[in-house]
Write a protein that binds this DNA or RNA. Structure first.
Lengths: 137, 137
DNA sequence: GCGCAATGTTTACAGGCGTAGTCGATATGA
DNA sequence: TCATATCGACTACGCCTGTAAACATTGCGC
């Protein structure tokens, strides 16, 4: 037995991979989008929609730095922030978490569920079909 | 202020649908599995694997009752607990949350991601294909 | 009848998260 | 040069979560 199903997480890399919270994730999205941004930039991108103050963004950025999810480069008297972890990596991790937790690790079950609960439009189905075709080669 | 633009959450139904935490979810799984169980039953099912004490299970059960995710029926001097919300409902909700958050609501993108990140085995692919075929009828 | 074991209730407490105010330094424009 | 705007750092604070101990009640075996 290689331990419980969890803790398979890639702590292996030595890179401290801490969990990113919901609010932090919103900030990450901005950084993934721009590649690099100042705190003010990030706020400009999200403060309105999420109804946040600049202070909130600053806090989230600090926490993300602590979690080693982003890094800073000094630019004059301010910082430019940029992602350390790739979006794909994050998305993959989160997806896998969900599949593990809710579908016993079987991704096909997830797809089945989406399909049966009609969360998939005809368009989705067509897209997936195309994907499958591509993958089979 | 009606908060953020999302809040599509079904608070509409009057049914208090509060978010179920990770630990609480583990308890839910037991109840979904058995349909009905006492605190001791639940503990028997999860305390070892999760390394919990009975007290912890009791707390989680109480919180789930508060959140109206489960209900109690007295059975002698104890309670029998059973789920109020269906597993499918929960799973669907969580899946949709993820798809919304990470894939802009496009479920096909999730499948694409799983495929490209090789989270799908050949078996998964075959299964999905079969599913699609079925759905197309 | 009485102690004990089992059960739900109450209380606890540390750590994470959402949200933000305050503070000290500093670039900047007048 | 001096006020001001800006920036990151530090502090705050209430709620949620994980984890559990202490407590009160009560049915049960003896």
């Amino acid at each position: 037995m290689s331990k419980s199903p969890n803790d398979s997480d890639a702590r292996s890399s030595g890179l401290g991979r801490e969990r990113i919270s919901e609010a932090e994730h919103a900030v990450m999205e901005v950084l993934w989008d721009r590649g690099t941004a100042s705190a003010a930039d990030v706020c400009e991108a999200v403060c309105e929609t999420r109804d946040w103050s600049l202070a909130t963004v600053k806090t989230l950025l600090s926490r993300l730095v602590q979690k080693a999810a982003i890094e800073t480069r000094p630019d004059g008297r301010r910082y430019l922030y940029s992602p350390v972890i790739a979006r794909d990596e994050y998305v993959g991790g989160e997806s896998r978490r969900l599949v593990d937790r809710l579908f016993g690790g079987r991704a096909a079950s997830l797809v089945a569920h989406l399909a049966q609960s009609e969360a998939l439009t005809d368009n989705d189905l067509a897209e997936i079909e195309a994907l499958l075709k591509e993958l089979k080669q």
